[in-house]
Design a protein around this nucleic acid. Structure first.
Lengths: 232, 232
DNA sequence: AGGAAATCTTAAGATTTTAATAAGCAAAAA
DNA sequence: TTTTTGCTTATTAAAATCTTAAGATTTCCT
């Protein structure tokens, strides 16, 4: 799981801590000791998560959080020394996604960071710690980076939608995926269709294309009354 | 913010608490006192969030959490009486999105519930507590529920993509939206295009359709070198 | 076997993307 | 100031892709 993380911390304690605990992770850390520089960083870097201390020399953490929320979607974790509930509630209501009071166990912060990143990143049901970018098994190779697909050495030219459907099916291989679930994963939550055989049509096209490169095994299996499935 | 919430709680304390604090919200609560019934509920109801106590008479909260993660994406908040860090870390690593130790302030739980729901729901940059489903100003009406659009009483028939673009522009009205940002909001993170004038073409179609119903005001303004914008 | 429900097939029509070309803007050069 | 230059945005139209809809087929159940 690669991620760009912004840490704004007056005392530098958290930054040091992260240095120690996140060395093995593929994280890029942007450290700042005041709000002004942090805001600049928010503008220019593509961040995946922010850890903000409430107490800062210039701007307070709440304001930074609000600024982030005006333009960005990435998760924000707030930190405070004060054990006052009202601060927690202010922070969370303002747009923070998590709120931790000092002192805390270093591993708890790490776990919360990962939990937030996991939610922020898509397709993470199976292996939460490593985002899968390539799937390969029994002659089939799917590369999320290039959106390319190979079946038994032969390249299949799939359309974006076809690729996405096959990706979801493969990342759930061995399990049945309902067509509603497929639709949800591929098209997102924004649409709502009732009589939806769109998925079906795409499945058909997929089968057609896959059939050119393989004979007997019907890769995408229909599980009657439930959905579709690819064998393990 | 309407949501279906599952609460699994041995002692019934949290359920009562939620009754008191969430009466005014548009929440549907599914309460269970053991794991078995809860699992059944997870199968059959479309849930938006789960609050799980770790200690349960039959199945423990961790197992329920894992079961949820096998099939679903909605956020999970774990509760425990034990103040042991290792539990927190287990929970968060296992797929929980938040973890609270008892005793906690009722409002903190409520705030965390809302924070999780907010993240789970899209398009929440401006008003975190109330998801905007309709935008209306100066003769233009956009209804997210029906995907319908009216300009000066006349209905515009927009394609899904056109509607989404207009929605993003309108929900950021007064501010400039770069075409990269537009692309990101409308198409999602899954795609990556470099030479991308697709957005441009859609903007053109939008302008064409909007021009039929209004004369002088060029609704979608080009801000040279930056992006597009709709006046407030 | 026969009916009902689920899935498949097909093809037309709608939408989206691509690609090539034109037009517009802003700063540097004349 | 005017012209040139390089870059950004606009306009088209064709090609690719997606969705819809209706009828055909398969599977399940009694």
């Amino acid at each position: 799981m690669a991620a760009n993380i912004l840490i704004v911390d007056d005392e530098q304690a958290i930054a040091d801590l992260v240095d120690v605990y996140l060395t093995n992770e593929n994280f890029t850390i942007f450290k700042f000791y005041n709000g002004r520089d942090a805001l600049d960083c928010i503008e220019h870097e593509k961040l995946d998560l922010a850890i903000l201390d409430v107490m800062l020399p210039d701007i307070d953490g709440f304001s930074i959080c609000r600024k982030i929320r005006e333009k960005h979607h990435f998760p924000v974790i707030m930190l405070t020394a004060k054990e006052e509930e009202i601060d927690k509630i202010t922070g969370l209501t303002l747009g923070a996604d998590d709120y931790i009071t000092k002192p805390f166990h270093p591993l708890e912060l790490m776990a919360r960071v990962k939990a937030q990143l996991r939610r922020f990143t898509k397709y993470n049901t199976t292996d939460p710690d490593q985002e899968e970018r390539v799937i390969a098994f029994s002659g089939l190779v799917l590369d999320m980076n290039t959106h390319e697909c190979t079946l038994n050495e032969k390249k299949l030219s799939l359309t974006p939608t076809e690729f996405s459907i096959l990706w979801v099916l493969c990342s759930n291989r061995g399990r049945v995926v309902s067509s509603e679930q497929l639709f949800h994963e591929v098209w997102g939550d924004k649409y709502f269709t009732n009589s939806n055989n769109t998925v079906m049509v795409h499945i058909r096209h997929l089968r057609e294309k896959m059939h050119d490169s393989t004979e007997h095994p019907k890769y995408i299996k229909t599980v009657w009354g439930v959905g579709y499935k690819i064998e393990k």
